[in-house]
Amino acid sequence: MYRIFYLSLILLLSACAHIPTQTDTPPTIKTVEQQLQEIRLAQESFATKDAVNSLHDKVAQLTAENKLLQEQINELKSSKLIKKTTAPSSTANIPDTTNTQTNQSIYQTALKLYQNKQYLSAIDLLKPFAFGSDHSEEAQKAMYLLSLAHQKLRHCDAAIDISKRFTELFAQNSKAPEALYNMATCQTYLQQKDIAKETFKTLIKQYPNSNAAKRAEHKLK
């Protein structure tokens, strides 16, 4: 009887010894954190690649634009520096017509753009003449055309500024009365009516026999 009891007790203790114990930290929590970290790293990697690709595109675009600009600069330099070769003293007093020819070419191109209503392209081409350039006849034409192109696009501040400077630099130019009239027109458009009236009066006083003065008199009635 006692032997059976002791044998049963030994078997029970042996079975309890083989029951597995539970771990304190669930293994699934660490696995989820690792997966989240991997996702974050992947997202950062993709964002970095997109930024690098965007920078590559911008660099390529700037490189192309710089190349085009350099070609234009070289072309202008070559046209302006034709007289680099040594000339005999007998030709020392021959005037350099390179600038005049260049200005004429630019003006004719810009005029065609203006006539085709490509005003922005004309402005880009005529920007160097905003202050009168070399004051040559072609430069004066280009400066006046630049003011007209700005006026067509309602860039009235620019048109007024250039027209005012034109009349101050080239008061004897046949387009000076028209420049004053255009200036007053832009001032009226900007609701500067009192200033526009004074500009019309200045036009009538300085160029009383011009067609622009007659139109100004009509505006003041």
Rank of each mutant, 00 (worst) to 15 (best):
R40L: 02
A42V: 01
L9F: 14
D96L: 03
L220C: 11
Q108Y: 07
V32P: 00
T23P: 04
S14F: 15
K112E: 06
I106T: 07
N66A: 14
A159S: 15
K152I: 02
K205C: 06
E44N: 03
A216V: 07
A159I: 08
I160S: 04
I106Y: 02
T85L: 12
A47K: 07
H150I: 00
S8V: 15
A176L: 09
L81E: 12
S78L: 09
M1F: 11
I106R: 00
E137F: 12
N74P: 03
I195W: 07
S79A: 14
K80I: 13
N93K: 13
E168K: 12
R154H: 12
L76K: 05
M143I: 03
T202W: 05
T48H: 10
M143G: 00
K67P: 01
Q101I: 10
Q22F: 11
Q115F: 06
T202S: 12
M1Y: 08
N103E: 00
E44H: 02
R215K: 15
T100I: 12
L7V: 13
K175W: 11
M183C: 15
R215M: 15
A212Y: 11
Y144E: 01
T91P: 00
T202P: 03
L145M: 07
E138V: 04
T91G: 01
E217T: 14
F166R: 04
T25M: 09
E75P: 02
T199P: 03
N93C: 10
G132M: 01
P177Y: 11
I195L: 13
A179N: 07
T25K: 14
K193G: 10
Y181Q: 12
H18T: 14
T100D: 09
L111P: 00
A142F: 05
T91E: 12
Q34T: 10
K77M: 07
S45T: 07
A179T: 08
S121Q: 15
M143K: 06
I73S: 06
N53D: 10
E33T: 10
I160W: 00
K164W: 09
A64M: 09
Y207E: 06
T85H: 11
V52L: 08
A17H: 14
H150V: 03
I19Y: 11
K141E: 01
L7I: 14
I73D: 02
C186N: 15
L36M: 02
R154N: 14
N211C: 04
K30Y: 06
K164S: 14
Y107S: 02
Y107W: 01
A92R: 05
Q72H: 11
E198S: 15
T102N: 08
L113M: 06
Q191P: 05
L153V: 03
Q108H: 07
N173K: 06
S136N: 05
L148I: 01
L62Y: 10
V32Q: 06
A216W: 08
V32S: 06
T48D: 05
L203C: 05
